[in-house]
Design a binder for these strands. Structure first.
Lengths: 231, 231
DNA sequence: ACAGCGTTGTCAACAGTGTTGCGCGAACTC
DNA sequence: GAGTTCGCGCAACACTGTTGACAACGCTGT
């Protein structure tokens, strides 16, 4: 028992000031502060009270740290999903939870919009979505495609919202006011639809859009399952 | 006629080497080279044969240049849409054209995934989508929300794909191989769905996913219009 | 034709980013 | 207790976008 089987087990020092966990938690604290101060390596060192480059003893590079942090936030999402829901309810809860976490840690979600963590919690999310799609009545390649549709779409949605939050307030203001400014003054001849619906376009909220996007996913799955059942 | 009305009309010099147009075109050439060399100000100066900082005489900052370049690519998308299509066909053509342009200029699309150009061609795209949604049978606030759903979704989709193309080849390879590596070795007890569908999950292509996402949008609009008609 | 002046490109520099190599001291192993 | 490894601090590098000073060019009005 005295000899570790193959690897020396790399005894991590007990008195270490920094641990992967403490670094991840500091990263989350910074990310939660929003765009006020960006999520940078030097700011991370400040938050930890150590030299910025010390984190490179625990993570190969910033990307690996980001993947670990993102997986942690995925855990938060999963914990927010109650039991006993049907497949639509589970997908809605997953979407709502993902959005909430994305708005809480925008820097993380923004960076992960087209990535894969390949870590523990991601497997749980995949299993969750797959279960929902299967319960809806899809299977095989059909279920696989629709899982990817849901997964990629959710990631893209929340990443888009998160990235938006990271812009300078003035840039964001310019984008938002465009609906009530530039779009009001377009040529009525060339753009009749914009002219006629200008008011309604300016009044659409982010939540309405998100809701519509999520329901579109659910409707698409339901429709496809119904078509297969009928065939 | 000798006196310009109010502003001195700021006579732009005729012999200028650089013009907004030439800078935009150089930007597109660089962006089309993919992730090989990134779209940076210094590289832009190289491409133009001038000092990098010269572009600041024509654009306030890199963001404003990016907005102009993006609007130009929107023009490419619009030109690729044939006439005489019904609303579904127009949306499909818009989606396909957007994806093609995004894959052609990934740096541009990636940066614009959550932005608004507020320039000429964007109005034309908005008018196009609004027309499709109206033709499908929606109107008023309902049409406005569904327009935003389509617009934001398309932007997010293609931005996601574009951003993916910009990653280091090794990062991309790690992400792609995960489906045939990590996901094959998960615990069969805890993740039965992943275990059972592992093969199909690894075989899903980007095109299948994109197709499913676009069709989901169309289905959602159709469904909503049908529900309103019935009510 | 000439003075004036705005426009435009060049250059050096700054603040910020992620990352690496070197050294020291402390903690663990034997 | 000796030797080795590990964790951290420090300085530095390459890269990013951006700014201010400067000089030269060409248009403008007289």
């Amino acid at each position: 028992m005295s000899k570790p089987p193959v690897t020396p087990a790399r005894t991590k020092r007990v008195g270490a000031q920094l641990t992967p966990e403490s670094i991840i938690e500091a990263s989350l604290r910074i990310a939660a502060r929003g765009s006020a101060d960006a999520f940078t390596v030097r700011r991370l060192g400040e938050e930890l009270g150590t030299d910025p480059t010390a984190i490179y003893r625990h993570f190969r590079d910033k990307d690996e740290l980001l993947l670990s942090v993102a997986d942690r936030t995925l855990g938060e999402v999963l914990d927010s999903i109650p039991d006993g829901l049907d497949w639509k309810g589970r997908l809605r809860a997953l979407a709502a939870g993902s959005l909430a976490v994305a708005l809480k840690y925008p820097a993380v979600s923004s960076a992960m919009a087209s990535r894969t963590t390949r870590r523990g919690n991601e497997f749980r999310v995949v299993e969750l979505i797959l279960g929902a799609v299967l319960e809806a009545g899809l299977d095989g390649a059909e279920a696989a495609v629709h899982y990817r549709m849901v997964g990629d779409s959710l990631l893209a949605y929340v990443g888009q919202r998160a990235a938006y939050l990271l812009f300078d307030p003035e840039v964001r203001a310019a984008d938002e006011s465009s609906w009530s400014r530039e779009y009001r003054t377009v040529d009525a001849q060339g753009f009749p639809h914009i002219t006629r619906l200008g008011q309604q376009l300016a009044e659409v909220t982010h939540d309405q859009i998100f809701h519509a996007r999520v329901e579109a996913l659910i409707t698409a799955i339901e429709q496809r399952a119904g078509a297969l059942r009928g065939a």
